[in-house]
Design a protein around this nucleic acid. Structure first.
Lengths: 182, 182
DNA sequence: AAGTGCTGCGCAATCCGTTGTATACGCACT
DNA sequence: AGTGCGTATACAACGGATTGCGCAGCACTT
């Protein structure tokens, strides 16, 4: 259980609404930890019951009102406590990989077109991350080290995936050339 | 929900016991999809109720009896069906990354020592994967393409992580040098 | 005028996953 | 004799996560 802590980390720098957090989870942090809005609102509710966060109600014009959450001292203390204990191993769920592993039974053309779609998403993400990394690099490195490192992880991850995708493409195209030639 | 499918993929080539599967999940596939033995036994139970897999009871000497599971036609059909529909996006839970993102509040020395431990595990895994890739490459490439590609993913992933770890180390050591020098 | 999409919050049901506990035997080590 | 490890399976309880649904208003397009 540490969606809580991911939220606390995000709130550490700036106050944010549930909606803001959901967007961040879909982007930068999302590569490393993901959550849907329902989960986030639920967790924010629990956190504010436990006085780890507080919120102020912000009415808006043309948009629905929002709640801007920020850390309390107790929340910061909890975060510090959590940072001290060793993190568990990383867990992944990559359905596409499972499909490649079971590729012998799959339609190669289908796999290839799915690969294209995923590669496109990854390339877009890579571009976003690279732009972000440059911005962070230009505007003071030392203050943003931690954000910068997080983004770097995203960049290296996308690159590794894209490189792997190239290998997969070559192998699969090779195989499909074999079978269509027969 | 597709632990089911990961299991079906693994049973596609060879029959295996729950225990065997648990080991595979802890190693090769585990990088991409993880599960504990309880989860696996439970899922095998469901799968066999639904006639997706069957098992034969194998008594052993010196060891407990085991159940060797294999795919049924219905199981293979279900797998093919699943392979056709697009996979969802990959999900990750990497607590260490969250800690780095929240690094401003963390003890740098503690983060560094945790980094060491994780890097060591990754290096070991990398060695395992590289050995496995070589074996697959030597013993016929074309039959093992899918296994080979899966392992390649593991290799590229470990390398990307280790490269990132070096960047983190440099940044953190730089920071801790600053603070101890003051 | 209707449809689509974005901002924003939330409940309920169900399913997935983790953790704890249990059993059983053999082997090796202390 | 006791402890720990490896093989092998399984139940129960709890908490985390996904999916489905609902409300509400504004902006922009068709």
């Amino acid at each position: 259980m540490s969606l809580r802590h991911a939220i606390l980390v995000l709130l550490q720098d700036q106050e944010a609404s549930g909606y803001d957090l959901a967007r961040e989870f879909a982007n930068s942090i999302g590569l490393v930890w993901n959550a849907t809005h329902q989960q986030i609102y639920l967790e924010l509710g629990k956190l504010s019951e436990q006085d780890m966060v507080r919120y102020r109600h912000v009415p808006q014009e043309g948009k629905p009102d929002k709640k801007l959450y920020s850390l309390t001292d107790a929340g910061r203390a909890e975060l510090v406590r959590w940072l001290k204990k060793p993190a568990g191993p990383a867990r992944i769920r990559d359905a596409f990989m499972v499909k490649v592993a079971g590729g012998a039974l799959a339609d190669t053309q289908l796999l290839l077109s799915e690969l294209d779609i995923l590669a496109k998403q990854r390339r877009e993400r890579l571009a976003t991350f690279e732009a972000l990394a440059q911005r962070l690099d230009e505007s003071g490195r030392d203050e943003n080290v931690y954000n910068y490192l997080t983004v770097r992880r995203g960049i290296l991850d996308q690159r590794a995936w894209l490189q792997w995708a190239e290998e997969v493409r070559r192998s699969l195209e090779h195989r499909s050339a074999d079978s269509t030639a027969s």
